[in-house]
């Protein structure tokens, strides 16, 4: 689902770079020292997940896991995804370097949204955690597909057509990611529940003011 070089107009590329840099800066400020190893592990997971191909007729789609990264990292997810995408484009030629900002926004914003939803929906029970994890995993890819369609509208494509195509092509990925996220959340809930803790999206001292 990566956007390649030369697809988007220059103004949009620059705008996306500016937007993603602001969000990456904000995301970097939201990472605490204790969280660094967790962010590194999930960045590596995001980087590797794109190599898991799901065969689909004559072509194949790959996993994205923005939902899972968002659910586990919260506000730190954007930086992890931006770094993962940078390395993917440099080492695997996934998506163009010029479209890195657009790709980061396309996967980072759904990740942040999924992190926010997961934080507020997970509750305290195991079932709620699993349900919230599955929802976050599935919605991450749905959000990415919709943002992809929105970005491609600027390149002259029809929004509904591209959105439908992207959603249909990624339907197996959405289901797989929801399942994988539910399993990961369930496993972590049992084995290491502190890993499911996220940094708050808005710092507590700002909430008090």
């Amino acid at each position: 689902m990566h956007i390649s070089d030369g697809v988007l107009p220059t103004s949009l590329i620059l705008g996306c770079y500016a937007g993603s840099m602001v969000l990456a800066g904000w995301s970097a400020r939201r990472i605490s020292n204790d969280e660094l190893p967790k962010v590194a592990v999930l960045t590596a997971s995001f980087f590797i997940a794109s190599l898991v191909h799901v065969p689909l007729g004559p072509t194949s789609v790959h996993l994205l896991i923005p939902g899972l990264v968002g659910a586990l990292l919260g506000p730190a997810a954007f930086l992890a995804i931006a770094l993962g995408l940078l390395l993917q484009s440099l080492l695997f030629q996934f998506g163009g370097l010029t479209a890195l900002g657009a790709n980061a926004l396309m996967m980072g914003i759904p990740a942040l949204c999924c992190g926010f939803f997961f934080r507020h929906l997970r509750g305290t029970t195991r079932q709620r955690h699993i349900l919230a994890g599955a929802l976050a995993g599935g919605l991450g890819t749905v959000g990415s597909a919709l943002l992809l369609a929105l970005l491609l509208v600027s390149a002259g494509d029809d929004f509904l057509g591209v959105a439908k195509l992207a959603l249909v092509a990624h339907l197996p990925v959405i289901l797989i990611e929801a399942t994988v996220s539910a399993f990961v959340v369930s496993f972590l809930y049992t084995v290491k529940p502190e890993l499911l803790r996220q940094q708050p999206f808005i710092p507590p001292q700002k909430l008090n003011v």
């Binding site: 660094l36 962010v39 590194a40 960045t43 590596a44 980087f47 590797i48 770094l83 993962g84 390395l87």
Partner: peptide
């Protein structure tokens, strides 16, 4: 190499 970069940057 990619994993090495990630670990290196965060380290």
């Amino acid at each position: 190499g990619g994993i090495g970069w990630i670990v290196g940057i965060f380290g």
